[in-house]
Every structure is written in C-alpha cells, then in structure tokens.
Design a protein around this nucleic acid. Structure first.
Length: 782
DNA sequence: CTTTACCCACTTTTT
DNA sequence: GTGGGTAAAG
C-alpha cells in the first residue's frame, strides 16, 4: 500500500507530497486530478494528519463519494470515513445544523430547493400586487441568488447604486424590496435556500468569532476541487477557514470553468497566488485520457479563447480515430443515427453500452435519443433533468415530513394543506396567509386558532382535523424513527391509498415512486451507523436536509450498470467515456441563444465545447440536425460555429440520411456534405403538405364550428316560474328542470350525504349529465 | 369547494 | 410536447 507514490508522474508526486502551506494545482483535463487529490489526502493521513482535521469540498455528491472511495482503497482501512468530504452545500448544511440556533434558525431548518424558493417568491410578488410578467419569479430569483452569491444583504442590495440602476433600467425597481421580504419570509419559515447555505455560513463565521476559531482549528487541511467554479461566497468562506493554517490546496482548470451563470468567477483561481504568498503551483499537463487526435482538437479549440492560464496539454497515447461530424435532417434522425452508430460500434469494436455517452447542451434534447435507443433495445439511463425528489408525488409526501420536522415551513404547509382534498380551499388558505402576515404569526400558528382568521363552520372543522392529524405525526417523531413517521403519514393522509386506487399508467408510476421513497427512508433509518466514531444523525430532520441536496445523478450509484449514459455536458464534467456523442451542435442551442452576443458568455460556451471534447477517450462524434422540434414546432438552426473551429484535418464529415435511405452513401461522399441540402425527397412531400394544409384549414374551421355548436348547451329557456328546489328532496325517478339543460329524469343518485350527485338524463341533444346537487339549480317538476 | 378544460410559457447549464 | 395556472362549470 505504501507504493502509492510510484503510480504518479513527477508533477503529480510533487503535488501529493507537498504537505504544509498553500498549493494550487492547475490540472488540465484528464491529467489525473482526482487521483492527485485523493492520493494527497491519503498521503496526509499517512504522515500523521488526523482524518478529523481534513476538509475536502467538491461541487457534486458524486465527486465526493468517489474521492472517499478511492482514499479508502489507497489506505486499505476505514479511517477515511472520518474525513469531512462533501459538497460545499452538504458540508455547510451539516455545520449549520449544529450551529443554526446561533443564527436564530431551528436546527431542523428546512432547505428550500429552487422550486420552493420560486413558489415562495411568487406568493410574495402577488402579495405586492406586482405584475408577474414583469416580475417573473425566475428572474427575481436569479437576481436574489446572484446577490447572495456575492454576499450582499437585502439592505446592501437596496443601497447599491449600480444594482438599483440596473433594476430601474430593466423596469423592476422593486426587486430589492422583494429580496428583503423573501429573506424575512425564509427566516420566519425556518428555511434556507441553496444560496443561504453559503451566505449564512459566511455570516456565521464572520459574526461568531468563536465558531470561526473552532472550525479553523478543526480543519487544519483544506482541499477544494474544481476551484475555478467557486463563487464569491465560497471563496470567502474558504479563505476564512484556511486563514490560520494556510494549508489550503486548490485544484482547478480555468479551461473548464462552466458555471459563471451560477456566480462562479474565474478570478478566484487566477488570483490564488496573490491571496497566498509563496503558494506552490503545480501544473499537470500530461493527459492520460484521450487520443492524440482528440487532444489536438481540444487544444486548438480552447486556444481561441482569450482569457486563460497558458497550458500545454500533451499525451503519449496513439493518434487514434478522427472525429466524425454528422449532419442529419431532423432531431429524430439524429437520435436514430446515434442509436445505429452505437449498435454498430458494439458489434464492430466490441464496446459495451457503458462505454457510450450522449452529451447535449440542454436537458430537453434527450427525447429523440431515448426513443431511438428504446427502439433499438439499447439500455440507457438519463442523468439529470427532474430528480426523483422533484416529482410531484414525492414533493407532496416530503412536504408532510417537512412540516413534522419544522412546522414553521409555510411552503410545505401550503403545498399539502388540501392534498389529498380535505375541504380547505383557496379562499381559506388566502385568509390564513393574510392573518399570518398581519399578526406576524406563522402559518402553522394561525392554523391552531382558525377563528382568528375568520374561519368557521366546515372550513374551521377541516382545519382542526388537519391540525390534529399533523400533531399526531409530530408526537410520533419523538419516539419513532423517520420511517415510522413516514409510514403513518402515508396511511393517515390517505395518500398511499389514493395513489393506489389511481389505475392509470401515471398513477401507477406515482404509487411506485412513493413506495420507493418509503423504502429509501426505511433503508436510511435501518442502515446501522458505521462502526467508526462518526455517529450519523438518523433523525427525520437530518434525512430531509440531506435529500434536498441530492441530485438524480447521486441517487443510485450502481456505477456498473451496462447502460448508455445521457446527460448534459455540465453534468458530464469530471467523467470520461470511450465513445462520446456530442449532439445538437447548432447555433442557438450550442452555443446557446443566450450567449451569442457577449464575448465572455461565448467563451464559456467554448469552454463547454472543450469539456465535451475532452470527455472522450477513443472516439468522438459531433452531430447536428438541419431542423428540429422546439416548443412543439419545427425550427431550423445553422450548424454551430464551433464546428468550424475544429481543424478539418482531424475530422471526417458525413451525412446520415433517413433510416434505410440508399442515398446515405452518396451524400456522404459528395463534396461539402455538411452544407448540402437533401433536396430530392422533399419535392413530393412539399406538395402533399400544401394540399393537406389547405384542406386542413377548411376542415379545422368546420370542426371548430361544429365543436363550438356541440359545446354550447342546447339553448334552453328556463320556465318563467323557475325556482330552485331543495336538493335534499330530490330522489331517483323524479322529473326536474335544469336552468340550462332543460327537462330531464333523475336516473341515479350517488355521492355522500353532503355532496349528493345525481345522474340525469336530459334526453336527445344533451344526454346524461352528472349534476352536483349542492351547486346546480334544479326545480322539481312533479 | 372541486373538477375540468383550455391557455400559456417553457428551454441553458445545478447545488 | 409538457406541465402548471386559471376560468368556468358542476
């Protein structure tokens, strides 16, 4: 085990064996960055540093898990479990859990994900009677997020001239006010959003010197992965934590900085040497991943960017295959082409599914590939997109648990107070919110005394029943574990039963998802604490805080499933694959339409292109479609400008026609294939579409007319003496008159005592209708 | 109060 | 094409 140093090259070893003092590792793509980080941590421990004194921060849970695993492997014991390794967010959440009460938060504080944050913000925008077209929650959330990532309080935001000017110019001068209200409401709800985990952490360290001292002392060695992606808040926190010992090691690659939209600033890595005088700098420039050809392309592409630390990435691997550029007619053809190519490569070069990745710019692009892979019977898995925990049914279920752990959580309450339906509707909720805002009480407190909000009768009774139920769950929490509470919630709210009774396909999936959630909670509570000294917090509160920070990619780490992987390029950073399909290389997609007009933005897109190129070990395809469906309609985009930045000598061009099209070969060999259009087959198609189109307009007009006629109830003029009768008296067989539907016969009665529903046959033209007697006006005729 | 039927906005990228 | 939000009917 002690020969781990032998597996390193000279530069790597230099970085690993540097123990005390600041160290910056500039690690090019595929240069063994993770290996260096993990080996360095193992080396520290070998040299007497206690695992408890090492903090390693990453950006994804996956990276953290991988590091931990690899360190364990090097060390050959389980000392690694005492390390503090995790994402910025999860490590800070863990610390905040211990320290939150100092800041006035409950230790069971809720973590709001972006959906929670947006819905809270939306409510606030409405309360202020602002136009949510102008004040789009997403936009406002973005401004607030940026402020927090720059460590700016609401007061500072409102006093900052530049920002005020910006907001005024964009026609949204009140954002500062919204920020203040949003922050106050989060606090009242006992909740932190993702940005707060950083922002509040910073405030904690600044405002409580004893806390700062404690963690400075604890974390004698600090390591930061992907330093180029840190934002101001992360940068300042790290600076504070490392200030005493200055045993800080950062690893990064400016060429792979792709998170500036999240406030990351490349400045942090560029000024490291100024921040820490005498810092040692090690450059890792040997690439162990990609073939010569792939690397050449990557180097040329990134060379077009102006801002960068000079590097010379090289490899001693063979030249390898050229890149393949593929043009298809449509997005569906692109999907088909990729699936075909995978099938072919598997046969010809003995690859497995797991050796392939399909990488795209936006999550929405996955559909065509899913369909074609499924058709070809190729196993795949999509990473990212909607995470398991963002599904409606899961969020609903978790909302209950959140209230149990933290009754202040208004967002969770609003979410489920009437789900499953229990007769607490919109007006009741509005009243409660108003009462809560006026009295300064929390939503939950108002629920305790619904009379104060002017509630009475059925609504008040429903609220009371709801409160009693929630209290019983909260009482359970004291004695029972998270799973027992969750099980009771599923049972007593009727949620599980309701989903079970929904026999539609989606209903079934929802039911299964909830079962899966319950299972995962069970697993969480039953997994015994690891035998190291670290006693993991198994409470409901800890569970909830943890899962909010989980991404889909983290959920199952069954790495070895033999599946093709589909994900965004962002999600693929740090990963590598034998064969990579970089798809959707079209203007407005990649580079994104949002980045076309700003040099900095465009350079970030180019870095993204660099990232996708450098994911590939052996083979790389680049594809684009002439036209594709976006927002449900067909659009055409030019080929991406990045295609022209690939030196032609490293790239083969081809054209993938429609499946089975004989023209595919000839098109591929024709000159300037990429620019050539596929004309011949389009002539007849054009004709048919025109014919169909003209026919369509008439048809659809007629259909629309018919529909309008049918939808309009047959004009029935109510009798002059029409008086609504008492619904209590209505029974099967009676003849009744309806205000709109006319005269009919009650053929069936159902529904509960207070919600009777009559099925009435109104005869030809109207037919049978189900009428809720409480609301419809009917007159008994007999 | 609840359900349904339209209408619209949505697409960068993530903790 | 989708999912969420709103208006009108039940």
């Amino acid at each position: 085990m002690s020969d781990y140093l032998k597996e390193l090259n000279e530069r790597q070893r230099e970085a690993v064996t540097h123990i005390d003092g600041p160290l910056m590792i500039v690690a090019g793509a595929g240069s063994g960055k993770t290996k260096v980080l993990t080996t360095r941590i193992a080396h520290l421990m070998r040299n007497g540093v206690d695992a408890f004194n090492i903090l390693a921060l990453t950006f994804t849970n996956k990276a953290a898990a991988e590091m931990k695993e690899r360190i364990e492997k090097i060390l050959g014991n389980n000392e690694a479990r005492n390390l503090y390794i995790g994402t910025f967010h999860s490590v800070f959440a863990r610390i905040m859990r211990a320290e939150a009460t100092k800041m006035g938060y409950p230790s069971n504080f809720t973590i709001y994900d972006s959906d929670d944050a947006k819905s809270l913000l939306k409510g606030i925008i409405n309360e202020n009677n602002l136009d949510d077209k102008m004040y789009k929650p997403q936009y406002v959330a973005g401004r607030i997020s940026a402020a927090k990532n720059n460590l700016m309080t609401p007061a500072q935001y409102q006093q900052d001239h530049f920002i005020q000017q910006e907001d005024a110019r964009s026609g949204r001068p009140l954002i500062g006010q919204l920020y203040a209200q949003y922050a106050a409401r989060c606090f009242k709800n006992g909740a932190m959003d993702f940005d707060d985990l950083l922002f509040k952490m910073y405030q904690l360290l600044v405002n409580f010197p004893d806390v700062l001292a404690k963690y400075q002392h604890k974390f004698k060695y600090v390591l930061i992965d992907e330093y180029q992606d840190t934002n101001i808040a992360q940068y300042q926190i790290v600076k504070l934590l490392a200030a005493v010992h200055e045993n800080i090691c950062v690893v990064g690659d400016d060429a792979q900085s792709i998170y500036s939209f999240r406030g990351a600033t490349i400045e942090n890595i560029l000024k490291f040497q100024k921040d820490y005088e005498g810092a040692k700098v090690v450059k890792l420039e040997q690439n162990y991943r990609s073939s010569q050809n792939i690397l050449n392309v990557a180097n040329r592409v990134i060379g077009l960017n102006k801002n960068q630390i000079p590097k010379n990435l090289w490899t001693d691997k063979p030249e390898g295959e050229k890149l393949k550029l593929v043009r298809t007619l449509t997005d569906n053809d692109e999907g088909k082409f990729v699936a075909d190519a995978i099938a072919e490569q598997k046969l010809r070069n003995h690859y497995n599914n797991r050796d392939f990745a399909i990488l795209y710019r936006t999550n929405a692009q996955s559909r065509a590939f899913e369909e074609s892979l499924r058709r070809m019977n190729i196993a795949y898995r999509i990473f990212g997109g909607l995470s398991f925990y963002q599904r409606k049914e899961i969020k609903d279920f978790i909302a209950y648990l959140r209230i149990v752990a933290n009754p202040q959580d208004e967002e969770a309450l609003k979410r489920i107070i009437n789900y499953p339906v229990r007769g607490i509707g919109k007006t009741s909720v509005e009243r409660i919110i108003i009462a809560a805002n006026e009295s300064g009480k929390t939503f939950w407190e108002v629920l305790q005394e619904p009379q104060l909000a002017g509630m009475k009768g059925a609504a008040a009774a429903a609220i009371e029943a709801f409160v009693v139920m929630m209290r019983s769950f909260q009482a359970m929490q004291q004695k029972n574990n998270a799973y027992d509470v969750a099980f009771a919630v599923g049972k007593h709210t009727n949620m599980v039963k309701e989903l079970y009774n929904d026999k539609t396909v989606e209903g079934l999936a929802r039911y299964e998802n909830v079962q899966e959630l319950l299972n995962s909670i069970k697993e969480y509570t039953e997994t015994p604490n690891e035998d190291g000294e670290v006693v993991e917090d198994k409470s409901l509160g800890a569970y909830l805080q943890q899962i909010t920070l989980l991404t889909d990619a983290d959920k199952n780490n069954e790495e070895d499933q033999d599946v093709v992987k589909l994900m965004t390029i962002h999600a693929a950073k740090g990963l590598e694959f034998d064969c990579v399909f970089a798809v959707g290389l079209e203007e407005n997609i990649f580079p994104s339409a949002m980045s076309l007009y700003d040099r900095e933005d465009l350079e970030e897109e180019r870095r993204l292109f660099y990232v996708v190129i450098t994911r590939a070990r052996d083979r790389l395809w680049i594809s684009y479609a002439n036209s594709r469906y976006r927002f449900g309609s067909l659009v055409q985009n030019d080929p991406s400008r990045f295609i022209d930045e690939v030196p032609p000598e490293y790239m083969d061009r081809s054209f993938a026609g429609i499946a089975g099209a004989k023209g595919s070969g000839s098109a591929a060999s024709s000159p300037g294939g990429a620019a050539r259009s596929y004309a011949p087959k389009q002539q007849p198609a054009k004709n048919t579409t025109t014919v169909a189109a003209s026919g369509n307009t008439d048809l659809s007009r007629i259909a629309a007319l018919n529909k309008a006629k049918a939808a309009q109830p047959v004009a029935h003029v109510p009798s002059a003496n029409f008086v609504a009768s008492d619904p209590e008296q209505m029974e099967q067989g009676m003849r009744v008159e309806h205000m709109k539907f006319g005269v009919g016969t009650i053929i069936k009665m159902d529904g509960g005592a207070h919600n009777r529903i009559a099925t009435i046959d109104f005869g030809a033209g109207v037919g049978e209708k189900k009428i809720m007697l409480n609301y419809a006006k009917l007159m008994i005729l007999n």
